[in-house]
Amino acid sequence: MSRASLRKSLCILGIGLSVVLFSVDFVCAQSIVKGVTPRENEPILPIPLHHEVNSAKAKLGEQLFHETLLSGDNSISCASCHNIDQYGVDGTRSSVGIEGQVGTVNAPTVLNSRFNFAQFWDGRAEDLKEQAKGPVTNPIEMGSVWADVIAKLKKDKSYVQAFDNIYEEGITPDTVADAIKNYEYTLTTVNSPFDQYLRGFDDAITEQQKRGYSLFKEYGCVACHQGVNVGGNMYQRMGAFIPYFTEKNTKLKADLGRYNVTKDDRDLHVFKVPSLRVAAHTAPYFHDGSVATLEEAIDIMARYQLGYTISRQDNKDIAAFIQSLSGEIRRSGQ
Protein backbone atom coordinates (compact mmCIF):
# COMPACT_ATOMS: atom_id res chain seq x y z
CA MET A 1 0.00 0.00 0.00
CA SER A 2 1.36 3.45 -0.90
CA ARG A 3 2.00 6.16 1.69
CA ALA A 4 -0.90 8.22 0.34
CA SER A 5 -3.26 5.23 0.40
CA LEU A 6 -2.26 4.29 3.94
CA ARG A 7 -2.69 7.85 5.12
CA LYS A 8 -6.11 7.98 3.47
CA SER A 9 -7.08 4.72 5.16
CA LEU A 10 -6.00 6.04 8.54
CA CYS A 11 -8.03 9.18 8.02
CA ILE A 12 -11.11 7.20 7.02
CA LEU A 13 -10.70 5.04 10.13
CA GLY A 14 -10.35 8.06 12.37
CA ILE A 15 -13.28 9.92 10.88
CA GLY A 16 -15.40 6.77 11.02
CA LEU A 17 -14.73 6.39 14.71
CA SER A 18 -15.55 10.04 15.21
CA VAL A 19 -18.92 9.66 13.49
CA VAL A 20 -19.78 6.85 15.91
CA LEU A 21 -18.77 9.01 18.84
CA PHE A 22 -20.67 11.94 17.37
CA SER A 23 -23.92 10.01 17.04
CA VAL A 24 -23.70 8.78 20.64
CA ASP A 25 -22.52 11.92 22.39
CA PHE A 26 -23.81 14.82 20.31
CA VAL A 27 -26.81 15.68 22.48
CA CYS A 28 -24.95 15.61 25.79
CA ALA A 29 -21.82 17.25 24.37
CA GLN A 30 -23.48 20.37 23.00
CA SER A 31 -24.57 23.44 24.81
CA ILE A 32 -27.47 24.88 22.83
CA VAL A 33 -27.60 28.67 22.76
CA LYS A 34 -30.37 30.52 20.95
CA GLY A 35 -29.11 31.96 17.68
CA VAL A 36 -25.88 29.94 17.73
CA THR A 37 -25.53 26.85 15.55
CA PRO A 38 -23.12 24.17 16.80
CA ARG A 39 -20.77 22.71 14.23
CA GLU A 40 -21.73 19.22 13.14
CA ASN A 41 -19.81 16.34 11.58
CA GLU A 42 -16.49 17.45 13.00
CA PRO A 43 -14.01 14.72 14.00
CA ILE A 44 -13.52 16.34 17.42
CA LEU A 45 -16.35 16.74 19.93
CA PRO A 46 -16.65 19.16 22.85
CA ILE A 47 -16.32 17.81 26.36
CA PRO A 48 -19.79 17.67 27.97
CA LEU A 49 -20.31 20.51 30.42
CA HIS A 50 -21.95 18.26 33.01
CA HIS A 51 -21.51 14.66 34.14
CA GLU A 52 -23.42 12.49 36.53
CA VAL A 53 -21.11 11.61 39.41
CA ASN A 54 -21.71 10.02 42.80
CA SER A 55 -20.67 13.01 44.91
CA ALA A 56 -20.18 11.02 48.13
CA LYS A 57 -17.86 8.56 46.41
CA ALA A 58 -16.05 11.37 44.61
CA LYS A 59 -15.44 13.26 47.86
CA LEU A 60 -14.02 10.15 49.51
CA GLY A 61 -12.00 9.42 46.38
CA GLU A 62 -10.48 12.90 46.43
CA GLN A 63 -9.24 12.30 49.97
CA LEU A 64 -7.81 8.92 49.00
CA PHE A 65 -6.19 10.40 45.86
CA HIS A 66 -4.14 12.64 48.16
CA GLU A 67 -3.62 9.98 50.86
CA THR A 68 0.00 8.90 51.45
CA LEU A 69 -1.16 5.92 53.55
CA LEU A 70 -1.67 4.10 50.26
CA SER A 71 2.12 3.82 49.86
CA GLY A 72 4.43 1.43 51.65
CA ASP A 73 6.31 4.10 53.62
CA ASN A 74 3.48 6.66 53.79
CA SER A 75 5.34 9.10 51.54
CA ILE A 76 3.63 8.86 48.14
CA SER A 77 0.06 9.57 47.02
CA CYS A 78 -1.63 9.49 43.63
CA ALA A 79 -1.30 13.27 43.60
CA SER A 80 2.48 13.01 43.93
CA CYS A 81 2.71 12.07 40.26
CA HIS A 82 -0.64 13.52 39.13
CA ASN A 83 -0.70 17.06 40.48
CA ILE A 84 -4.09 18.55 39.65
CA ASP A 85 -2.67 22.07 39.91
CA GLN A 86 -0.16 21.13 37.17
CA TYR A 87 -2.73 19.75 34.74
CA GLY A 88 -2.62 16.28 36.26
CA VAL A 89 1.11 15.61 35.81
CA ASP A 90 4.34 16.27 37.70
CA GLY A 91 6.33 17.76 34.82
CA THR A 92 9.13 15.18 35.03
CA ARG A 93 10.37 12.76 32.41
CA SER A 94 9.64 9.83 34.75
CA SER A 95 8.04 10.15 38.17
CA VAL A 96 9.85 9.37 41.40
CA GLY A 97 8.25 6.72 43.58
CA ILE A 98 8.88 5.10 46.93
CA GLU A 99 12.46 5.33 48.25
CA GLY A 100 13.42 7.62 45.39
CA GLN A 101 12.99 5.01 42.68
CA VAL A 102 12.47 6.42 39.19
CA GLY A 103 9.71 5.04 36.98
CA THR A 104 10.13 3.69 33.47
CA VAL A 105 7.49 5.76 31.63
CA ASN A 106 6.14 9.29 31.66
CA ALA A 107 3.11 9.72 33.92
CA PRO A 108 0.13 10.71 31.71
CA THR A 109 -2.33 13.33 32.86
CA VAL A 110 -5.25 12.19 34.98
CA LEU A 111 -7.42 14.98 33.58
CA ASN A 112 -10.12 13.75 31.20
CA SER A 113 -8.94 10.17 31.78
CA ARG A 114 -12.58 9.10 32.10
CA PHE A 115 -12.82 9.44 28.31
CA ASN A 116 -9.96 7.02 27.57
CA PHE A 117 -11.01 3.62 26.26
CA ALA A 118 -8.22 1.98 28.28
CA GLN A 119 -5.67 3.15 30.85
CA PHE A 120 -1.85 3.28 30.93
CA TRP A 121 0.32 3.71 27.84
CA ASP A 122 0.07 0.01 27.06
CA GLY A 123 -3.66 -0.24 27.83
CA ARG A 124 -3.17 -2.90 30.50
CA ALA A 125 -6.01 -1.53 32.63
CA GLU A 126 -9.52 -1.75 31.23
CA ASP A 127 -10.88 1.18 33.23
CA LEU A 128 -10.02 3.72 35.93
CA LYS A 129 -10.99 1.39 38.76
CA GLU A 130 -8.50 -1.20 37.58
CA GLN A 131 -5.94 1.51 36.91
CA ALA A 132 -6.23 2.92 40.44
CA LYS A 133 -5.11 -0.40 41.91
CA GLY A 134 -1.93 -0.70 39.84
CA PRO A 135 0.38 1.94 41.34
CA VAL A 136 -0.44 0.92 44.93
CA THR A 137 1.33 -2.41 44.59
CA ASN A 138 3.91 -1.42 41.97
CA PRO A 139 7.27 -1.81 43.76
CA ILE A 140 8.78 1.33 42.22
CA GLU A 141 5.71 3.52 42.54
CA MET A 142 3.83 3.25 45.85
CA GLY A 143 5.38 -0.07 46.86
CA SER A 144 2.67 -1.31 49.18
CA VAL A 145 0.47 -4.38 49.59
CA TRP A 146 -3.27 -4.14 49.92
CA ALA A 147 -3.45 -5.88 53.28
CA ASP A 148 -1.24 -3.17 54.78
CA VAL A 149 -3.17 -0.36 53.08
CA ILE A 150 -6.51 -1.63 54.38
CA ALA A 151 -5.10 -2.08 57.88
CA LYS A 152 -3.81 1.50 57.95
CA LEU A 153 -7.05 2.96 56.67
CA LYS A 154 -9.08 0.98 59.22
CA LYS A 155 -7.11 2.62 62.03
CA ASP A 156 -8.65 5.95 60.97
CA LYS A 157 -12.20 6.14 62.34
CA SER A 158 -13.18 8.83 59.84
CA TYR A 159 -12.29 6.50 56.95
CA VAL A 160 -14.15 3.60 58.52
CA GLN A 161 -17.26 5.76 58.92
CA ALA A 162 -17.02 7.21 55.42
CA PHE A 163 -16.68 3.80 53.78
CA ASP A 164 -19.44 2.26 55.90
CA ASN A 165 -21.78 5.08 54.87
CA ILE A 166 -21.17 4.42 51.16
CA TYR A 167 -20.16 0.79 50.72
CA GLU A 168 -21.85 -2.19 52.30
CA GLU A 169 -18.54 -4.10 52.28
CA GLY A 170 -16.60 -1.28 53.95
CA ILE A 171 -12.90 -0.75 53.21
CA THR A 172 -11.56 -3.15 50.57
CA PRO A 173 -9.19 -2.81 47.61
CA ASP A 174 -12.24 -2.65 45.32
CA THR A 175 -13.98 0.11 47.28
CA VAL A 176 -10.78 2.16 47.60
CA ALA A 177 -10.26 1.92 43.84
CA ASP A 178 -13.92 2.64 43.13
CA ALA A 179 -13.85 5.82 45.21
CA ILE A 180 -10.70 7.05 43.45
CA LYS A 181 -12.29 6.24 40.10
CA ASN A 182 -15.33 8.36 40.97
CA TYR A 183 -13.08 11.27 41.96
CA GLU A 184 -11.17 10.98 38.69
CA TYR A 185 -14.50 11.04 36.85
CA THR A 186 -14.89 14.63 38.07
CA LEU A 187 -11.53 15.76 36.67
CA THR A 188 -12.51 17.14 33.29
CA THR A 189 -11.50 20.30 31.46
CA VAL A 190 -14.59 21.98 30.13
CA ASN A 191 -15.44 24.98 27.96
CA SER A 192 -12.11 25.23 26.16
CA PRO A 193 -11.84 27.90 23.44
CA PHE A 194 -12.00 25.15 20.83
CA ASP A 195 -15.07 23.57 22.42
CA GLN A 196 -16.74 26.98 22.34
CA TYR A 197 -15.81 27.17 18.66
CA LEU A 198 -17.40 23.76 18.07
CA ARG A 199 -20.52 24.99 19.83
CA GLY A 200 -20.84 27.73 17.25
CA PHE A 201 -18.90 30.67 18.66
CA ASP A 202 -16.66 31.58 15.71
CA ASP A 203 -14.54 34.11 17.61
CA ALA A 204 -13.67 31.73 20.45
CA ILE A 205 -10.38 30.81 18.74
CA THR A 206 -7.91 32.90 16.77
CA GLU A 207 -7.32 32.82 13.03
CA GLN A 208 -4.02 31.06 13.68
CA GLN A 209 -5.79 28.38 15.72
CA LYS A 210 -8.33 27.92 12.92
CA ARG A 211 -5.46 27.46 10.45
CA GLY A 212 -3.89 24.99 12.85
CA TYR A 213 -7.10 22.97 13.03
CA SER A 214 -7.34 22.85 9.24
CA LEU A 215 -3.74 21.66 9.02
CA PHE A 216 -4.38 19.13 11.79
CA LYS A 217 -7.05 17.60 9.58
CA GLU A 218 -5.22 17.99 6.28
CA TYR A 219 -2.01 16.34 7.44
CA GLY A 220 -3.98 13.45 8.94
CA CYS A 221 -3.27 14.03 12.65
CA VAL A 222 -7.00 13.66 13.19
CA ALA A 223 -6.87 10.01 12.10
CA CYS A 224 -5.66 9.17 15.60
CA HIS A 225 -6.43 12.30 17.60
CA GLN A 226 -10.20 12.79 17.48
CA GLY A 227 -13.37 12.30 19.50
CA VAL A 228 -14.12 13.97 22.83
CA ASN A 229 -10.62 13.48 24.21
CA VAL A 230 -8.76 14.21 20.96
CA GLY A 231 -7.13 10.82 21.39
CA GLY A 232 -7.29 8.10 24.00
CA ASN A 233 -9.69 5.93 21.97
CA MET A 234 -7.38 3.67 19.95
CA TYR A 235 -3.94 2.07 19.77
CA GLN A 236 -1.32 3.00 17.20
CA ARG A 237 2.23 1.97 16.38
CA MET A 238 4.89 4.55 17.17
CA GLY A 239 6.44 4.91 13.73
CA ALA A 240 3.56 4.21 11.36
CA PHE A 241 5.51 5.50 8.32
CA ILE A 242 9.14 5.56 9.49
CA PRO A 243 10.39 3.01 12.08
CA TYR A 244 10.85 5.20 15.15
CA PHE A 245 12.57 2.71 17.44
CA THR A 246 14.97 1.51 14.76
CA GLU A 247 16.43 5.00 14.65
CA LYS A 248 16.39 5.32 18.44
CA ASN A 249 18.01 1.89 18.72
CA THR A 250 16.76 1.26 22.25
CA LYS A 251 15.93 -2.08 23.81
CA LEU A 252 14.01 -0.83 26.83
CA LYS A 253 11.00 -2.86 27.97
CA ALA A 254 8.92 0.32 28.14
CA ASP A 255 9.51 0.85 24.41
CA LEU A 256 7.82 -2.45 23.56
CA GLY A 257 4.42 -0.90 24.27
CA ARG A 258 1.35 -3.09 24.18
CA TYR A 259 3.51 -6.11 23.36
CA ASN A 260 4.30 -6.26 27.08
CA VAL A 261 0.60 -7.01 27.67
CA THR A 262 -0.33 -9.25 24.75
CA LYS A 263 3.01 -10.84 23.74
CA ASP A 264 1.71 -10.50 20.18
CA ASP A 265 4.37 -9.38 17.69
CA ARG A 266 1.77 -7.22 15.98
CA ASP A 267 1.63 -5.10 19.14
CA LEU A 268 5.35 -4.34 19.20
CA HIS A 269 5.85 -0.57 19.72
CA VAL A 270 2.07 -0.04 19.81
CA PHE A 271 0.74 2.40 22.39
CA LYS A 272 -2.55 3.94 23.39
CA VAL A 273 -2.88 7.21 21.50
CA PRO A 274 -2.61 9.97 24.13
CA SER A 275 -5.22 12.67 24.55
CA LEU A 276 -4.23 16.15 23.37
CA ARG A 277 -6.80 17.88 25.56
CA VAL A 278 -4.24 19.51 27.89
CA ALA A 279 -1.11 18.60 25.92
CA ALA A 280 -0.01 22.23 25.77
CA HIS A 281 0.64 22.02 29.54
CA THR A 282 1.97 18.49 30.05
CA ALA A 283 5.54 18.45 28.75
CA PRO A 284 7.69 16.40 28.47
CA TYR A 285 6.07 14.20 25.83
CA PHE A 286 5.72 10.61 24.64
CA HIS A 287 5.70 7.42 26.69
CA ASP A 288 9.31 7.94 27.77
CA GLY A 289 9.14 11.69 28.36
CA SER A 290 12.03 12.12 25.92
CA VAL A 291 10.65 15.14 24.06
CA ALA A 292 10.87 18.47 25.86
CA THR A 293 8.64 20.75 23.77
CA LEU A 294 5.31 20.62 22.00
CA GLU A 295 6.91 21.94 18.82
CA GLU A 296 9.42 19.09 18.75
CA ALA A 297 6.65 16.57 19.44
CA ILE A 298 4.66 17.91 16.47
CA ASP A 299 7.67 17.57 14.16
CA ILE A 300 8.35 14.00 15.29
CA MET A 301 4.73 12.97 14.90
CA ALA A 302 4.52 14.53 11.44
CA ARG A 303 7.63 12.70 10.30
CA TYR A 304 7.27 9.24 11.86
CA GLN A 305 3.48 8.89 11.94
CA LEU A 306 2.50 10.72 8.75
CA GLY A 307 5.63 10.90 6.59
CA TYR A 308 5.80 14.71 6.44
CA THR A 309 8.42 17.32 7.14
CA ILE A 310 6.34 20.36 8.00
CA SER A 311 7.23 24.03 7.90
CA ARG A 312 7.92 26.15 10.98
CA GLN A 313 4.75 28.11 10.34
CA ASP A 314 2.60 25.01 10.06
CA ASN A 315 4.15 23.73 13.28
CA LYS A 316 3.33 26.98 15.07
CA ASP A 317 -0.24 26.96 13.77
CA ILE A 318 -0.84 23.36 14.88
CA ALA A 319 0.68 24.15 18.29
CA ALA A 320 -1.68 27.12 18.60
CA PHE A 321 -4.63 24.86 17.81
CA ILE A 322 -3.53 22.35 20.47
CA GLN A 323 -3.34 25.20 22.98
CA SER A 324 -6.99 25.99 22.24
CA LEU A 325 -8.03 22.51 23.40
CA SER A 326 -7.32 23.26 27.08
CA GLY A 327 -10.37 24.16 29.15
CA GLU A 328 -11.24 24.97 32.73
CA ILE A 329 -10.28 22.26 35.20
CA ARG A 330 -13.48 20.88 36.70
CA ARG A 331 -12.93 19.43 40.17
CA SER A 332 -14.90 17.34 42.61
CA GLY A 333 -18.00 19.18 43.78
CA GLN A 334 -17.93 21.78 40.98
Rank of each mutant, 00 (worst) to 15 (best):
N191H: 04
I318Y: 03
G91C: 01
P139M: 03
M238D: 15
Q334V: 09
M301F: 05
L111M: 12
H269K: 00
K316R: 15
G212L: 13
A79Y: 08
L10H: 08
S332P: 00
T188W: 00
D288K: 02
N41F: 08
Q101A: 15
M234Q: 05
N233F: 00
S332Y: 06
C78Q: 05
D122G: 12
Y213T: 12
S324E: 02
M234F: 11
E295D: 07
F271V: 13
H82N: 09
T68V: 13
Q161K: 15
T282F: 09
K133Q: 14
S55H: 14
H66Q: 13
N315R: 10
G16C: 07
L6C: 09
G97A: 02
Y219F: 10
R303F: 02
Q196I: 06
V270F: 12
I76T: 05
I76R: 04
R331T: 06
Q236T: 06
S275G: 15
H82P: 08
N249R: 10
E295H: 02
L49V: 04
Q208G: 04
I32K: 03
K57I: 08
Y244M: 06
G16I: 07
G72L: 00
S311Y: 02
I84N: 11
N249H: 10
A177I: 04
M142P: 00
R237S: 12
F271H: 11
V291R: 01
L69W: 01
F271G: 15
P43L: 03
A177Q: 01
R312A: 08
G220T: 03
C81K: 04
C81L: 01
N112K: 03
L60P: 02
N182L: 00
P46I: 01
E130C: 08
I318G: 06
N83M: 04
T309N: 02
A204H: 10
P108Y: 11
P274R: 11
L215G: 12
H281V: 04
S71N: 08
A162R: 04
M238C: 13
N138V: 07
S71V: 03
L306R: 02
K263E: 07
A132G: 07
H66D: 07
L276R: 06
Y304I: 03
T104R: 15
E295N: 09
L64C: 10
T104N: 15
N83A: 10
I44W: 04
S2E: 14
P139A: 00
S192R: 12
S71W: 00
V190C: 08
E169V: 10
V33L: 00
N138A: 13
S275R: 11
L294A: 08
K263V: 03
I298F: 08
R277G: 00
L306V: 03
Y259M: 02
I300K: 09
R199Y: 14
D317L: 01
S158K: 15
D299S: 02
E62M: 11
L13S: 13
K210Q: 11
S31K: 11
V270L: 00
A56E: 09
V27M: 11
A283E: 15
D174S: 10
R124H: 09
K8Q: 10
G14R: 09
S290W: 08
K253F: 14
G143P: 07
N182G: 05
G231K: 12
I84Q: 12
P243A: 01
I205W: 10
P173M: 05
L10M: 12
C78F: 04
A320I: 01
P139W: 00
E184L: 06
V291M: 01
V96W: 06
R93Q: 15
